[in-house]
Each structure stands twice: as C-alpha cells, then as structure tokens.
Design a binder for these strands. Structure first.
Ligand SMILES: [Mn+2]
Ligand SMILES: [Mn+2]
Ligand SMILES: [Mn+2]
Ligand SMILES: [Mn+2]
Lengths: 221, 221
DNA sequence: AACTTTTTTTAGACTAGTCTAAAAATTAGA
DNA sequence: TCTAATTTTTAGACTAGTCTAAAAAAAGTT
C-alpha cells in the first residue's frame, strides 16, 4: 500500500470534503483557502498526487480524486472520527476540545490499531459532532433526512443531529446556549433580509446567523 | 513551550537512552548508529538542538542533554510507555506488536491527552515490557534491585522484571518459550567462554546467548 | 615524536514542502 | 470580440532533514 506523508493526507482529506458539496472539479484556489496555504503550493502538491494516481489533474482544470484517492481520504476520516469518539467517550474530553488532537492522531499508520479502536469503542456509527464514521471497508452509512438549519422552514420541529467540528469557539458557544446532539428545537422565524434563524429550544429563544445556521444539521420530525 | 519536530524528539530520546548507560558525553558516531543515520546528519542536528539549548555540544566533544532536553526526552518516553500500555491493556495487542505504533503515538502533542490517558489506564507504574513510566513531573520511580540476566550468578533464583522492547522477533521468541514479566527463573549455569546463561523456567531448561541475556532484567529473590 | 587509523566536521547536493513575484491562461464584461 | 480582471502556473528562493565525499581533528601505535 502506497505510503503518504501527513501533508499529502491532509490535502486528500480537504479535497474529499470540498467534493462533498461541490459538483465537478475542485479549484486550486478553493483548496488553497481550505488548506490555509498558497495557490502555488497547491499546484505543486496536485502534480505530486496526480503522479501517484490519487487524483486527476490537468492544468487550469482543477482536480478530482480517483477511487484510490477517495479510499485514502475515507481511511483518514475514519481514523479522525474514531479518535474523536475515543477522546470524548473514554477520556471525557468535551466536543470542543478534540478536533486539533484528532488532526494529529488521524495520521497514525496502523490499520490494525484503527480496527481495534473501532471495536473497543463498540463500532460507533457517528462521532461526537454527529458525523458518520466510515467503516473498515470505507463505506459511510447515509445519514437519513438531514437538512441544514439554514434550509429549515418556519414552523418545523426538529432534532439537532450534527455540527461542524473544526472551530473551538463555535462549539463552546453551543455548549453555553445548551445546544447538543439530540436537542429538540422549533423553528420560530426566519429573517428574510439576513437569513437569521430564530429557534426555540430549552424553553428560550435563540437567534442564529446564517453562518451559524449553515453549520448545524437537523432532522425534521 | 518550545515546539519540536518528530525528528528532533527522536534524537532527544535516543540521546537520553544512550546516556542511561554511558557516563560522560555521547559521541556522534554512537548516536548515528542508534538513529540509523550518518554522522554528518547527526552533527547538523546537534548544532540545531544546541542552538535551542536542549543539549550542550562542542565540536569533537560529543553532547549531553541540558535539564530542558532531559525534560523533553522524559515527556516523550512517558507518552511512548503510556501508549504501549494502552495498546496492550485496552486493545489487547501483544507486547511484540506495540513498539512501532508507540513510536508514532509518542509524538502527539497534548499534555492534557497524556495526563488523561494516564488516568484512564489507572496510573500504571511500568509499561508492558517492564520499563518504568515517568510521571507528569518527569520523575521515574527507581526500579528496585534489578540486574541484567547477563550479570546474574549461578544458583540465583529470580523473577523476570523487564525486557528490551524494540525488536519484534526477540519478543516473539520470548512468547514462544513462555518467558513473560513475572516468570520465575533459576540460573542453572553460565558458560565462561561465550557468556551464555542456562536458565530453568516453566519446568524446562533454556539457553540464552550473552546478547539475549543483556536484554532481560531480573529481580533476584 | 611522527605516522596511521578513526572519528568528526564541513562542503555541496538532493527531496519535500512552502513562499513571493512574475508570467500565462482563463473568465468576465463592455 | 477585444480588453480587463481573476485564476492558475512557473520560476526561483528558502528551511528541514538527509546523503556522499573530502577535509580536519583526535586518538592510537610504533
Ligand atoms: Mn474533527
Ligand atoms: Mn491532520
Ligand atoms: Mn517501545
Ligand atoms: Mn518516534
């Protein structure tokens, strides 16, 4: 099996994630933004990953993962989410404290370790942020009926199913207002001029900006 | 706190380990051998680590860790041994399967993670190979009355307390002959011309070469 | 003390990953 | 469709870590 550096793995993961909500190829600039790096660095890396047949890349045309590239990305995501689950379930970290550590742990090379960790955790289906954990075979069980809070309709009742995991302050804010996975919410109103969502939860009303509302996924009841 | 690369950390650990059974400075060549690298590479790294005040180094004089360097080395060793303990105690790996994985895990940066892992494991005193685990403060509890099997005397009765951890085949061999931590042994004879040690254990007699006998530590009864 | 061998350092080169600045290609607009 | 703005690539430089080959220093030997 092809041996990858941490940097290569981080690129693959980023491309995979961007591909999730983009049809067609991923642009150099979008990837540079995601990776907090410069477009010229991205171009260099794309050439290398293309050489290793992890993605397809043609000058000025952006890139798209091959099946091999996707498999690698999913393996890294699997490890990331399993380790986050370990940190929260076994070591009692908060969901706002685990992403950075998992960014490191996801690069540990040992399939045996990953699979035993999975077993030790009882084969969890989702991580502490509600994201599905890919299985040993790389398959993600589709999460049913989820929509973004930003796409909800006034009057809906729903359950919080997932949140973005990579901003500590955002997660701490959710802690403060008492929003967790499983929290029931009512969509009270939406402000047409800025996209804010007014939500009733835990007996009080909270207003979420469109930015926040895009980072919370819910299951309408 | 000073941020170190994996390579720098591996050098510090190697220097610390070599210092354990060497008085005075560590030579460039010895370190190169330990690190499986070339003397010229070692010289470059020594300059860098000296610059960071992790060790003292003068041309042609070898090197010695400063207190800061020692503290860093002990922190890495602490993580290595805690992770090995986790792998064996919680994930049911064999003692022959964990060293390589721990070589990676020891570089994960998070004091909070290390300390919570320590607690999760019940504050173990020794790792799966019998090596003492440094505490949060970097102190190693001295392991009492241990000697190397190679230094034992004929007629001694003893208990196996520790083994070298870094050669998979060696540990598999010990598994095969049924030698574990806690195994009681009798020193039946020593061959003066090659240093071999004849040991009675588990009802049969085994002969250990001097090389092997130096990699097993025992506590005489 | 002089010569030889060993150890250690230096010099120069290479790869991986990143950057800035400039050139080239693509896309958008009039 | 021609020009302007944007995106992407190239060129060249830098750091970290490694290597080989050669020079310099230290240690060993007559
Ligand atoms: Mn995460
Ligand atoms: Mn990462
Ligand atoms: Mn080990
Ligand atoms: Mn290591």
């Amino acid at each position: 099996m092809l041996r990858l550096t941490q940097s290569e793995e981080n690129y693959l993961k980023a491309i995979f994630t961007l591909s999730q909500d983009t049809e067609g190829a991923i642009s150099t600039n979008d990837l540079a933004e995601k990776m907090l790096t410069k477009a010229s660095s991205v171009t260099d890396m794309l050439k290398k990953l293309c050489e290793k047949e992890l993605l397809e890349y043609q000058k000025y045309q952006g890139c798209a993962l091959t099946n091999s590239g996707k498999a690698h990305a999913l393996a890294i995501i699997r490890k990331h989410r399993l380790w986050e689950t370990f940190l929260v379930d076994k070591l009692n970290f908060g969901w706002d404290e685990v992403h950075e550590i998992a960014e490191q742990l996801e690069h540990i090379q040992s399939t045996e370790l990953t699979d035993r960790l999975d077993e030790f955790l009882g084969f969890p289906k989702v991580d502490p942020h509600g994201e599905p954990i890919p299985g040993k075979d790389g398959r993600i069980e589709s999460v049913s009926n989820r929509i973004l809070l930003s796409e909800s309709l006034v009057g809906m009742k729903a359950i919080v199913m997932g949140v973005e995991d990579d901003q500590t302050e955002f997660l701490q804010y959710l802690n403060k207002i008492g929003l967790h996975l499983g929290t029931p919410i009512d969509i009270a109103d939406k402000l047409s001029f800025d996209g804010s969502v007014l939500v009733n939860m835990n007996g009080k009303q909270v207003q979420f900006s469109i930015t926040i509302a895009k980072q919370i996924s819910i299951k309408p009841l």
